[in-house]
């Protein structure tokens, strides 16, 4: 799980072209969307594609999305649980 969290942090920083943010700066429990990182709803759509492309994990519902993208922990949990074997 720790390596998945680490990998997701790296992907978030590069996918969203986050400026002055390194993967280590992201706390596992901090608010991902609308928080300190400046991630917004458009970024979430990019992350949805990244999850589908890189992990074959689909999020097609806004409400599911808002729980999944709450923080890094919830995101990693969802990916781990829904990733095809």
């Amino acid at each position: 799980m720790e390596s998945l969290v680490r990998e997701l942090k790296e992907k978030i920083v590069t996918t969203l072209n986050l400026v002055d943010v390194s993967p280590d700066d992201i706390d596992d429990h901090e608010q991902l969307v609308g928080g300190r990182l400046g991630v917004d709803s458009i970024d979430v759509l990019e992350l949805v594609i990244m999850l589908e492309r890189d992990y074959s994990v689909k999020i097609e519902d806004r409400e599911v999305g808002s729980t999944v993208f709450a923080n890094l922990k919830s995101l990693a949990d969802y990916v781990a649980a829904n990733k095809p074997e």
């Binding site: 458009i42 970024d43 990019e46 594609i49 589908e52 492309r53």
Partner: peptide, 13 residues
């Protein structure tokens, strides 16, 4: 590249 699977919302906007 993705066979019409993945479209970027950011690029569309």
């Amino acid at each position: 590249q993705s066979g019409d699977q993945f479209a970027s919302a950011m690029d569309f906007i």
